[in-house]
């Protein structure tokens, strides 16, 4: 009797899980086109695990309780160069990490395309450009890139302490490759980090990212 009961319970639990999984899968399939980010501003930031340049895997979930910035990059893209040559990106990285923010630089260029780097090359770039990320992730299989719908380099995301995606889009409001446009620009990432630190909602949570296409192919 009791064995039968457990069996039934187990059966129900299994079929329940199965139904939920099938439901989730089918809802994903039916409502989302083939290329559509799973990440949505205002919802939980989807987790991923990608190798950092030192070879150790980094999981977004391991930073629970901390504010995380995701920065998609391609060092040869003129728009990325605008922000690194001017020192804008590095100073933002120092500012953020100095306040305990985790800064993950993500490279989603696949091998053979612009911006693809080996781990030593990536470390070399960090050194030579005096960059200050927490880690540089080599997303060679485009897993994180497609999960977040990263379209451009640079493409910026901010995740708050509760794991909610609170900002997605451009680094600032001057969509050009001119270094001269850096000083007068309104930096959306800094604004988002300030809002998160002050416990306020992000004023401009979604913007059009500008730059070069992420080299997925």
């Amino acid at each position: 009797m009791s064995a039968e009961l457990i069996g039934r319970r187990r059966f129900l639990a299994r079929t329940g899980t199965g139904l939920v999984l099938a439901g989730t899968a089918s809802s994903l399939l039916s409502t989302r086109p083939a290329w559509a980010a799973v990440a949505k501003v205002g919802e939980a930031a989807p987790g991923f695990t990608v190798n950092a340049t030192n070879g150790s895997p980094v999981s977004l979930g391991s930073y629970n309780g901390k504010v995380v910035v995701l920065e998609w990059t391609n060092h040869d893209c003129p728009y990325v160069r605008k922000h690194y040559d001017s020192g804008n990106m590095q100073s933002l990285q120092r500012e953020a990490t100095g306040q305990g923010v985790v800064w993950l630089t993500v490279i989603s260029s696949v091998e053979g395309t612009q911006g693809y780097v080996t781990p030593p090359q990536a470390d070399e770039l960090t050194m030579s450009r005096k960059a200050a990320p927490t880690a540089v992730l080599l997303d060679t299989k485009s897993v994180a890139g497609k999960l977040y719908g990263a379209t451009n380099t640079p493409h910026m995301y901010v995740v708050d302490k509760t794991g909610t995606l609170v900002y997605a889009g451009a680094i600032d409001d001057r969509p050009t490759s001119r270094r001269a446009d850096v000083p007068g620009a309104n930096n959306y990432v800094r604004a988002a980090l300030d809002a998160v630190a002050a416990g306020q909602p992000v004023k401009t949570p979604v913007t059009r990212a500008y730059g070069c296409t992420v080299k997925y192919s």
């Binding site: 060092h75 040869d76 003129p78 160069r81 040559d85 612009q114 780097v117 080996t118 030593p120 090359q121 070399e124 770039l125 050194m127 030579s128 450009r129």
Partner: peptide, 28 residues
């Protein structure tokens, strides 16, 4: 010019590991 600067900056570091790393390509 900026590209050249980065190339030069990148140069020495890469020279230290000639066996593993091909040079970071010129940007354009």
């Amino acid at each position: 010019a900026a590209a050249l600067v980065v190339g030069m900056l990148a140069g020495p570091g890469l020279a230290a590991e000639p066996a593993r790393a091909p040079t970071v390509k010129a940007p354009n």
